[in-house]
């Protein structure tokens, strides 16, 4: 059974160390699930070839599960989302193969009212099958 201090130490050790790349084969179903999850119409996001185009906020979900996976393994921890920044460079369409490069860029530690609190900054870069940068997402997670 791992405890919160072990998780905190592990997170700090991983600062600056790239997470193994994550590959997504984006198909219509993946975009459809995203559209349904945000209550969007799937007719608006279709191109002339019948392919679904991902809304610009789609990259927010890429790699997110890996980002918080280990943190979720300690039930006593509270995990909150501090902020999100998204820069979008190229559209993503069904049929794309995306590679996610994720890294913890900074960890700050502070003693809060509820004990030790970590502020973890993540950077998540997304490239398409032509190795073109499609988006950069920066996330702040707060755990205590």
């Amino acid at each position: 059974m791992i405890d919160s201090s072990q998780v905190f130490e592990e997170v700090k050790k991983r600062t600056g160390v790239p997470h193994p790349p994550i590959v997504y084969n984006v198909e219509n179903g993946m975009i459809e699930r995203f559209l349904e999850a945000i209550g969007e119409s799937n007719t608006k996001w279709r191109n002339n070839n019948g392919q679904l185009i991902a809304p610009p906020t789609f990259p927010l979900i890429l790699g997110f599960d890996c980002m918080i996976q280990e943190l979720n393994e300690v039930p006593s921890l509270t995990i909150l989302h501090g902020s999100t920044e998204l820069e979008s460079y190229l559209p993503i369409v069904a049929g794309d193969t995306l590679t996610i490069e994720m890294c913890i860029t900074n960890v700050r530690e502070r003693e809060g009212k509820t004990g030790q609190t970590l502020f973890i900054n993540f950077e998540i870069k997304c490239r398409n099958q032509q190795h073109e940068l499609t988006s950069i997402c920066r996330q702040l997670a707060i755990i205590y």
Binding site: P56, T84, L86
Partner: peptide, 23 residues
């Protein structure tokens, strides 16, 4: 945050592009 994105994409129309979003 995606709802904010949707508000923007609904407003700018098909030829507009959302380049940056920070919340």
């Amino acid at each position: 945050a995606c709802y904010l994105g949707q508000m923007i994409t609904d407003w700018i129309g098909e030829k507009g592009q959302l380049k940056k979003l920070a919340v």
